[in-house]
Amino acid sequence: MIDQEGLSEIYDRHQLMMNMTRKACKALGLPLLAADDIASPTVTAIKPDHFSAKQLKMMLKSSFNLNVAGGQAHLADEIIRIGHMGYCSPNDVLLCISLLEMGLSKLTGADTFGVGTKEAEKEYFHFLSRKEDRG
Protein backbone atom coordinates (compact mmCIF):
# COMPACT_ATOMS: atom_id res chain seq x y z
CA MET A 1 0.00 0.00 0.00
CA ILE A 2 2.85 2.38 0.84
CA ASP A 3 4.57 1.66 -2.47
CA GLN A 4 1.34 2.10 -4.37
CA GLU A 5 0.12 5.31 -2.67
CA GLY A 6 3.43 6.89 -1.68
CA LEU A 7 4.52 7.84 1.82
CA SER A 8 3.90 11.57 1.41
CA GLU A 9 0.38 10.93 0.10
CA ILE A 10 -0.33 8.62 3.04
CA TYR A 11 0.69 11.34 5.49
CA ASP A 12 -1.50 13.85 3.63
CA ARG A 13 -4.48 11.45 3.66
CA HIS A 14 -4.17 10.82 7.39
CA GLN A 15 -3.92 14.56 8.07
CA LEU A 16 -6.99 15.14 5.91
CA MET A 17 -9.04 12.49 7.70
CA MET A 18 -8.00 13.90 11.08
CA ASN A 19 -9.07 17.39 9.98
CA MET A 20 -12.36 16.10 8.58
CA THR A 21 -13.18 14.26 11.80
CA ARG A 22 -12.15 17.05 14.15
CA LYS A 23 -14.04 19.74 12.20
CA ALA A 24 -17.13 17.55 12.13
CA CYS A 25 -16.94 16.92 15.88
CA LYS A 26 -16.51 20.61 16.62
CA ALA A 27 -19.51 21.46 14.43
CA LEU A 28 -21.53 18.87 16.33
CA GLY A 29 -20.46 20.35 19.66
CA LEU A 30 -18.57 17.21 20.66
CA PRO A 31 -15.67 17.95 23.04
CA LEU A 32 -12.37 16.56 21.80
CA LEU A 33 -9.95 14.95 24.22
CA ALA A 34 -6.78 16.38 22.66
CA ALA A 35 -6.06 19.96 21.65
CA ASP A 36 -5.51 20.66 17.95
CA ASP A 37 -1.77 21.17 18.32
CA ILE A 38 -1.24 17.66 19.74
CA ALA A 39 -4.01 15.79 17.90
CA SER A 40 -3.19 12.43 16.36
CA PRO A 41 -3.59 11.98 12.59
CA THR A 42 -4.64 8.36 13.20
CA VAL A 43 -7.42 8.58 15.80
CA THR A 44 -9.79 11.19 17.20
CA ALA A 45 -10.95 10.87 20.80
CA ILE A 46 -14.25 12.44 21.84
CA LYS A 47 -15.12 13.04 25.50
CA PRO A 48 -18.85 13.81 25.66
CA ASP A 49 -20.01 16.02 28.48
CA HIS A 50 -23.80 15.76 28.10
CA PHE A 51 -24.33 12.06 27.41
CA SER A 52 -22.61 8.73 28.02
CA ALA A 53 -19.76 7.79 25.69
CA LYS A 54 -20.36 4.15 26.48
CA GLN A 55 -24.04 4.47 25.60
CA LEU A 56 -23.21 6.16 22.27
CA LYS A 57 -20.62 3.49 21.44
CA MET A 58 -23.07 0.65 22.15
CA MET A 59 -25.90 2.35 20.26
CA LEU A 60 -23.73 3.01 17.18
CA LYS A 61 -22.88 -0.69 17.09
CA SER A 62 -26.39 -2.01 17.69
CA SER A 63 -28.26 0.46 15.46
CA PHE A 64 -25.80 1.08 12.63
CA ASN A 65 -23.19 -1.68 12.90
CA LEU A 66 -20.53 1.01 13.37
CA ASN A 67 -17.62 0.08 15.60
CA VAL A 68 -15.95 2.90 17.47
CA ALA A 69 -13.46 2.22 20.22
CA GLY A 70 -13.85 3.16 23.83
CA GLY A 71 -11.05 4.54 25.90
CA GLN A 72 -8.40 2.67 27.79
CA ALA A 73 -7.86 2.32 31.55
CA HIS A 74 -9.69 5.07 33.45
CA LEU A 75 -11.15 6.48 30.19
CA ALA A 76 -12.73 3.16 29.15
CA ASP A 77 -16.32 4.40 29.45
CA GLU A 78 -15.67 8.15 29.15
CA ILE A 79 -14.47 8.55 25.57
CA ILE A 80 -15.03 7.15 22.14
CA ARG A 81 -12.25 6.91 19.59
CA ILE A 82 -12.73 7.14 15.85
CA GLY A 83 -9.87 5.58 13.95
CA HIS A 84 -8.81 7.03 10.62
CA MET A 85 -5.67 5.26 9.54
CA GLY A 86 -4.39 2.45 7.35
CA TYR A 87 -6.93 1.32 4.80
CA CYS A 88 -9.37 4.02 5.89
CA SER A 89 -10.32 6.56 3.23
CA PRO A 90 -11.95 10.01 3.37
CA ASN A 91 -15.13 8.33 2.11
CA ASP A 92 -15.06 6.03 5.14
CA VAL A 93 -14.75 9.10 7.38
CA LEU A 94 -17.77 10.71 5.71
CA LEU A 95 -19.83 7.57 6.32
CA CYS A 96 -18.68 7.38 9.94
CA ILE A 97 -19.61 11.01 10.57
CA SER A 98 -23.00 10.53 8.95
CA LEU A 99 -23.71 7.53 11.20
CA LEU A 100 -22.41 9.47 14.19
CA GLU A 101 -24.90 12.23 13.39
CA MET A 102 -27.74 9.72 13.22
CA GLY A 103 -26.58 8.16 16.47
CA LEU A 104 -26.41 11.53 18.20
CA SER A 105 -29.90 12.39 16.98
CA LYS A 106 -31.23 9.08 18.24
CA LEU A 107 -29.44 9.39 21.58
CA THR A 108 -30.04 13.07 22.34
CA GLY A 109 -33.05 13.98 20.21
CA ALA A 110 -31.09 16.86 18.65
CA ASP A 111 -31.28 17.60 14.93
CA THR A 112 -27.67 16.78 14.05
CA PHE A 113 -28.28 15.64 10.47
CA GLY A 114 -25.67 17.00 8.10
CA VAL A 115 -24.03 19.30 10.64
CA GLY A 116 -20.69 17.53 10.90
CA THR A 117 -20.85 15.96 7.47
CA LYS A 118 -21.00 19.40 5.88
CA GLU A 119 -17.78 20.49 7.58
CA ALA A 120 -16.03 17.23 6.69
CA GLU A 121 -17.18 17.49 3.09
CA LYS A 122 -15.87 21.05 2.82
CA GLU A 123 -12.49 19.97 4.21
CA TYR A 124 -12.33 17.08 1.73
CA PHE A 125 -13.42 19.28 -1.19
CA HIS A 126 -10.77 21.92 -0.39
CA PHE A 127 -8.11 19.22 -0.06
CA LEU A 128 -9.00 17.83 -3.49
CA SER A 129 -9.07 21.33 -4.99
CA ARG A 130 -5.59 22.12 -3.62
CA LYS A 131 -4.33 18.78 -4.90
CA GLU A 132 -5.69 19.51 -8.39
CA ASP A 133 -4.13 23.00 -8.34
CA ARG A 134 -0.72 21.45 -7.62
CA GLY A 135 -1.15 19.23 -10.64
Rank of each mutant, 00 (worst) to 15 (best):
residue 101 E to S: 01
residue 55 Q to A: 15
residue 10 I to L: 15
residue 79 I to H: 05
residue 70 G to L: 06
residue 121 E to M: 14
residue 96 C to Y: 09
residue 39 A to P: 06
residue 17 M to F: 06
residue 134 R to P: 01
residue 8 S to N: 11
residue 133 D to C: 02
residue 8 S to I: 11
residue 118 K to Q: 14
residue 73 A to P: 02
residue 37 D to N: 13
residue 17 M to L: 03
residue 60 L to W: 09
residue 72 Q to F: 10
residue 119 E to T: 05
residue 75 L to M: 13
residue 99 L to H: 00
residue 48 P to W: 04
residue 123 E to I: 00
residue 4 Q to H: 07
residue 63 S to V: 02
residue 29 G to M: 12
residue 5 E to W: 03
residue 21 T to V: 03
residue 81 R to K: 12
residue 22 R to Y: 03
residue 24 A to T: 10
residue 128 L to M: 11
residue 89 S to V: 04
residue 46 I to N: 07
residue 103 G to C: 06
residue 92 D to T: 09
residue 81 R to A: 07
residue 103 G to I: 05
residue 90 P to D: 02
residue 67 N to H: 12
residue 120 A to T: 07
residue 82 I to C: 00
residue 89 S to D: 01
residue 20 M to V: 13
residue 28 L to D: 10
residue 41 P to E: 01
residue 27 A to F: 05
residue 125 F to L: 04
residue 90 P to K: 03
residue 57 K to T: 07
residue 31 P to E: 15
residue 125 F to A: 03
residue 46 I to W: 06
residue 61 K to P: 01
residue 28 L to E: 02
residue 28 L to S: 08
residue 91 N to L: 13
residue 7 L to K: 01
residue 99 L to I: 04
residue 121 E to Y: 12
residue 58 M to D: 13
residue 104 L to Y: 04
residue 36 D to C: 02
residue 51 F to A: 14
residue 61 K to I: 06
residue 100 L to P: 12
residue 96 C to I: 15
residue 135 G to Y: 10
residue 11 Y to E: 11
residue 34 A to Q: 08
residue 29 G to E: 08
residue 118 K to C: 05
residue 46 I to T: 07
residue 86 G to V: 08
residue 127 F to C: 02
residue 56 L to D: 10
residue 48 P to T: 08
residue 80 I to R: 07
residue 110 A to G: 00
residue 80 I to K: 09
residue 23 K to R: 14
residue 17 M to Y: 10
residue 57 K to F: 01
residue 66 L to T: 05
residue 105 S to I: 00
residue 89 S to Q: 10
residue 40 S to V: 04
residue 113 F to Q: 13
residue 64 F to P: 03
residue 127 F to M: 05
residue 38 I to T: 11
residue 111 D to K: 13
residue 15 Q to N: 14
residue 133 D to V: 10
residue 112 T to D: 00
residue 34 A to Y: 10
residue 42 T to K: 02
residue 86 G to M: 09
residue 63 S to G: 02
residue 33 L to E: 06
residue 74 H to E: 11
residue 104 L to V: 06
